[in-house]
């Protein structure tokens, strides 16, 4: 296995090195990457988008469609995790037999190690949620100190996320970063409080809407932009207030939607 792997890696490495060796030097100001579209963005970006953070400008305005699809990708990840069979749920009747005889996959049908036996060894606290005590996550050995600190800090971390969200147009930061921090708060709370209590922070009725809120907000903004400027996801260039409002809607949706999706993925994975 190993010699072959090394050979493969070498085979891949050689052309890659050859490729990067012939690229223009990366920090020269006259490299194409700095003279083409990028230069135009730097030159006109603030005027055209009203955003001082040009990364955000590219993200939301010039290449906003990429970002749209990007939030679709994380939604896809959530849909994927939700669509997988759940560990403890019984399989529906008459499940189709599995294929036999495909070479590299272990063959089906024969008795397999019992899932329960496997779980007691426990990768990542693999216990079914039904068994879990609703109030305190007694199965997670969390020291009282950690629990206290997390609970104490959670609001502040969330505040920091909000700050990142709203300062994103002039400092590094923005919706995705905020989403990651939001999700981290959720997950940390879930670990120390138990998942059910953490999950309760988001009302059940809202969940299906919240997890798709980012693509939906994009579609809405795209539609508004279409009505206003005649172009899908277009921002009215001369009206900075509307531009900013549209940008904020997107940022907030990304932060909330992304956070919910990431947190939900974590919760769902605890089969």
């Amino acid at each position: 296995m190993r010699p072959w792997s090394l050979l493969l890696v070498l085979l891949v490495a050689l052309p890659l090195v050859a490729g990067v060796a012939t690229l223009p030097p990366h920090d020269a100001p006259d490299a194409p990457i700095h003279t083409q579209v990028g230069a135009l963005y730097l030159e006109r970006g603030v005027a055209e988008t009203g955003m001082k953070n040009l990364v955000t400008a590219v993200l939301l305005n010039y290449r906003g469609f990429d970002t749209f699809i990007e939030v679709v990708v994380i939604f896809t990840a959530l849909a994927a995790v939700l669509a997988l069979p759940k560990g403890s749920a019984p399989l529906p009747k008459g499940n189709a037999p599995l294929p036999k005889g495909s070479a590299p996959v272990p063959k089906g049908n024969a008795p397999l190690p019992q899932p329960d036996a496997a779980r007691s060894q426990g990768v990542g606290g693999a216990r079914s949620r039904e068994e879990e005590a609703p109030e305190v996550a007694s199965d997670v050995p969390v020291s009282p100190v950690v629990r206290f600190v997390v609970r104490l800090l959670a609001p502040f971390i969330a505040m920091f996320a909000v700050a990142m969200l709203f300062r994103g147009h002039i400092t590094p930061g923005g919706g995705f970063q905020a989403a990651a921090v939001f999700a981290a708060v959720f997950i940390a709370l879930g670990l120390v409080l138990g998942q059910d209590r953490a999950a309760r922070l988001v009302p059940v009725d809202w969940r299906p809407w919240l997890q798709g809120v980012a693509p939906l907000a994009f579609a809405l903004v795209a539609w508004i932009g279409w009505r206003l400027t005649g172009a899908f996801l277009g921002y009215p260039i001369d009206d900075h207030t509307v531009q900013e409002a549209m940008g904020f809607v997107l940022e907030i949706a990304i932060a909330v939607g992304g956070g919910v999706v990431l947190a939900r993925i974590f919760l769902e994975m605890e089969t």
């Binding site: 397999l112 190690p113 899932p115 496997a118 990768v123 693999a126 994975m269 089969t271």
Partner: peptide
């Protein structure tokens, strides 16, 4: 996680 749950 699924593979682990199924095959151990």
């Amino acid at each position: 996680v699924q593979i682990h749950a199924h095959f151990g």
